[in-house]
Design a binder for these strands. Sequence first.
DNA 1: GCAAAATAGTTGCTATAACAACTATTGCTA
DNA 2: TAGCAATAGTTGTTATAGCAACTATTTTGC
Lengths: 147, 147
Amino acid sequence: MADTFVNNPSFFKLDATLKKLRNYWQKMFDSRQMDITVDQWLLVENLYKHKKTTHNELARNTSKDITTISRIIELLVKKGLVKREADTYDRRKVYLQLTPDGTEKYKQVKPLVHEMRKTGWKSLTEADYAELTRILDTIYNNIPTKI
Amino acid sequence: MADTFVNNPSFFKLDATLKKLRNYWQKMFDSRQMDITVDQWLLVENLYKHKKTTHNELARNTSKDITTISRIIELLVKKGLVKREADTYDRRKVYLQLTPDGTEKYKQVKPLVHEMRKTGWKSLTEADYAELTRILDTIYNNIPTKI
DNA sequence: GCAAAATAGTTGCTATAACAACTATTGCTA
DNA sequence: TAGCAATAGTTGTTATAGCAACTATTTTGC
């Protein structure tokens, strides 16, 4: 393998792109008074799709640490967007689901997210999307999970 | 544009890939007792390349907020890897540069970083790297800086 | 059946991210 | 040249990220 890309800062480029995306999303949320953060949105979106799930599943689905999930959910519960419900049979488990306000929030934010995704992908094709997916998946799978 | 990728979670995939990379790097740093974080490393690497620079330049070069730079530099100064030096003519400016220990740290960590970059790119080609760069740059430039 | 291991989740701590507000200094302009 | 704007950097606050240690349950293995 040539040094060309071993020395090249792909980590930096990923980080810079993601940060710009995240800031753009957050500023759009703020300017429309959505009263939500980007990561809170990602959890709401996931809860909308899965209806009823646990901290653990949510962590797996969102690639977030379970402690991070625990804290974001705490904020969403305080905002009245999510409710917790203990499992009857396994008392360690807590099911999470959107409240009616949470569902309302999802429907309110969704179109804006759709627009922002279009903005980000402007001038790119479906083939580009497939390429990006392939490359990122390859990198993901190249990285050892245990070292 | 078809909905295929407007609905597709590219944000999520970028985030997941970057997080896995970051965790892998950090665990490798920890297992080799490098006593440094990933972002501290990015600043050390940058200071090695630019020899003498300011908070502001470092922020631009690393895509980090200047407040974040200020705090990471504080940690690096405490570790003895970086020293601050006031500009003689413009007393607002502070120049940053690696100490001998900082240069030593760079040389110690660099080969490991090189190895990890090879690991991440295993089974990918230079054409893949060019594609990733092109797509990420396009997304980056698609995002409005001011909203 | 009981002790140990595994699972589910929370809390403490440190680091990074970003906005707002702040000090200090320098440059600009009426 | 006085006052205001711009620049360089720091500090306060809130949020996300992840490790370690913790409680509380449930499952496993002898």
